[in-house]
Design a protein around this nucleic acid. Structure first.
Length: 550
RNA sequence: GGCCUGUUGGUGAAGUGGCUUAACACACUGCCCUCUCAAGGCAGCAUUCACGGAUUCGAAUUCCGUACAGGCUACCA
């Protein structure tokens, strides 16, 4: 085709496209950002299902943009209407809010480079395609699905590469008249890239995470525009990330095979290439086979994003976990910098794992414990209350009624360099601190006690009534218990008892255990004296009465 | 079938040719501390980096082959 014929063809195919490339290039000028600023994006499809892997890449997007004073935007990639789920887009936005992974620009967040929804950018894509046709770099293809299926079969038999390329690209060099003929017959068509590549050439791509990657040059005449005029992912990616001035495309590993295509697309379109960072997927090692298997929504509930909220895992703790998989040196840094937060850490691509990362629940839980241990009793109280308001309204009410005391209980052993590290989830607070709130502490609490021992009620009553002094420090108190123990034939220390078990009825620990069980209903608790202090003598006696009546 | 990627302990992993008799963290085990628990302290936990060859004075680290695993190979993203 001659130059003139191509212009005619372009106008024939896209009579309604009257804008030009230059129009859009001017409309979306270079961003005014500081040197080294990174522009990243999260581009979910509108199915609305967000999983841990999505969250991981969005988290990385956010952190890299933030630390470089760049921009992180949300773009809805809804070029395929089949993937559209009612309420899906809203769900994506709300999950981002829930997990505090917030874009500063994009769909529902505003910005200068919109629309941030691909279904509203059709005209833009078509403008660029029209230009490609004029330049002879794209063409309409009228092959039917049956024809393509036949070719595929043939290719499978011949064990050659599958796809429309080289000799298989039958409509690549159609004359203008032939195209007109098809059009007259109302044949449906797609627009394909006239790939300039030769697979004999090797191209080298540098991925920010994976390093140097080598591929044969891309030569498949990939579809740019589907027959309904909407773009494929690949084409939309090139156009959007160019026009929105993305600097770093951070995405899942499954895209590395498309790299030769994407690089070629940028070349053909005359765009400055973007940098790519492919994140290894989160995987799961199957217990039985030992193989890495696909994650299943049913088998691996943690993969779905609801899991964290329902189980009361703090958002920030999840961030901590995401940070540890994003950068392998994060964890060590965090442990040695107890006063710093995630945003003080500098993420870098070369500290990102290349291989797949298995989800490690034990690690997450441990991170949660560390998180809680670094929070004050007041903070734990407030966060737990917020969580309870959503998941356990009754408990939330009780928490509010007992705010002062609850904070005191939650603050036990929080001072000092080694704060208590026991809670890992908001959902555990109710059970762990079941003794803290009078109105919900019932006889049944004693039944949960694993010990079937019968404790000496009179002994404990005698102690509380005649010896217990709540106005002293821990050491004085414990010495008092020791004295009481000795007086009643118990050893002053477990060691003494261990050495001469026949000389004693037991040891101080046994007395403490009896008190502990009667007032908390549990064998394990934080510092006993602190609990008693908060409870006060009156309530302690009530608890003993309750124990008696059980 | 083709193309691409990965493979270090129970787990997540550090490691980019000699400082590695393989860091750190989690988990686990034992001991210590201790009124219980949590925390903490000490010790243990891969003579070896999927396997086989090659390069080198020297390799977990470079190259080749094999095995295994994962991804892509759609008018899905």
């Amino acid at each position: 085709m001659t130059d003139e014929e191509r212009i005619e063809l372009a106008n024939l195919l896209f009579p309604n496209i009257d804008k030009t490339r230059d129009y859009y290039e001017d409309k979306y000028p270079e961003r005014n950002l500081p040197e080294g600023a990174m522009v990243t994006r999260y581009g979910p499809s509108p199915t609305g299902f967000v999983h841990l892997g999505n969250l991981l890449s969005a988290f990385a997007d956010m952190m890299y943009a933030k630390q470089s004073n760049g921009s992180f935007f949300l773009r809805i990639e809804d070029t395929d209407q089949k993937r559209m789920v009612d309420g899906g887009i809203e769900n994506i936005v709300s999950v981002l809010h829930d997990f505090d992974i917030l874009p500063n620009e994009g769909y529902s967040f505003g910005g200068e480079y919109g629309p941030y929804q691909q279904s509203e950018r059709t005209e833009i894509y078509q403008t660029y395609v029209k230009d490609l046709i004029v330049k002879g770099l794209a063409y309409p293809c009228f092959m039917t699905e049956e024809e393509i299926a036949t070719i595929k079969e043939e290719q499978e038999i011949n064990k050659t590469k599958i796809g429309i390329y080289g000799v298989y690209a039958a409509d690549r060099d159609l004359s203008l008249d032939e195209v007109k003929e098809h059009l007259k017959e109302k044949h449906e068509y797609v627009i394909r890239l006239k790939s300039p590549g030769n697979p004999k050439n090797e191209i080298e791509v540098v991925d920010c995470i994976k390093g140097k990657l080598k591929f044969p040059e891309h030569d498949v005449d990939t579809i740019l525009l589907k027959k309904d005029g909407t773009p494929t992912y690949h084409f939309a990616h090139a156009i959007d990330d160019h026009l929105m001035h993305t600097t770093h495309v951070i995405r899942g590993d499954e895209w590395v095979s498309s790299l030769p295509l994407h690089i070629q697309l940028f070349e053909v379109l005359g765009f400055e290439p973007v940098k790519y960072a492919h994140i290894a997927p989160i995987t799961i090692k199957d217990q039985e086979t030992g193989n890495i298997r696909k994650i299943s929504k049913r088998k691996d509930p943690w993969f779905g994003v609801k899991y964290y909220d329902e189980n009361g895992i703090p958002i920030e703790a999840l961030h901590l976990y995401l940070a540890t998989i994003t950068n392998t040196n994060f964890e060590e840094w965090y442990l040695s910098n107890p006063d710093k937060s995630i945003s003080d850490f500098t993420f870098s691509f070369d500290k990102q794992a290349i291989g797949g990362t298995s989800f490690d629940e034990a690690k997450l839980i441990n991170l949660c414990k560390t998180y809680f241990s670094r929070k004050s009793g007041k903070e734990v109280y407030e966060e737990t209350l917020n969580w309870a308001k959503k998941h356990d309204n009754e408990y939330a009410k009780v928490l509010e009624e007992n705010k002062e005391d609850m904070i005191k209980f939650l603050s036990i052993e929080k001072d000092g360099p080694r704060p208590r590290k026991d809670i890992s989830k908001y959902s555990e607070v109710k059970e762990e601190f079941s003794y803290a709130i009078d109105s919900i502490f019932k006889k049944e609490n004693y039944a949960k006690n694993e010990s079937e021992k019968e404790y000496n009620i009179d002994l404990v009553l005698d102690y509380v009534n005649n010896y217990l002094d709540l106005d002293c420090d821990n050491e004085t108190w414990f010495n008092g218990v020791r004295e009481f123990a000795t007086k009643n034939g118990y050893a002053a220390s477990p060691k003494d008892y261990k050495n001469n078990p026949d000389d004693y009825k037991g040891h101080v620990g046994d007395i403490c255990e009896a008190i502990r069980v009667m007032i908390t209903g549990r064998l394990k608790s934080p510092d006993l004296f602190s609990i008693m202090k908060i409870l006060g003598k009156e309530k302690i006696l009530e608890r003993i009465e309750l124990y008696k009546s059980r």
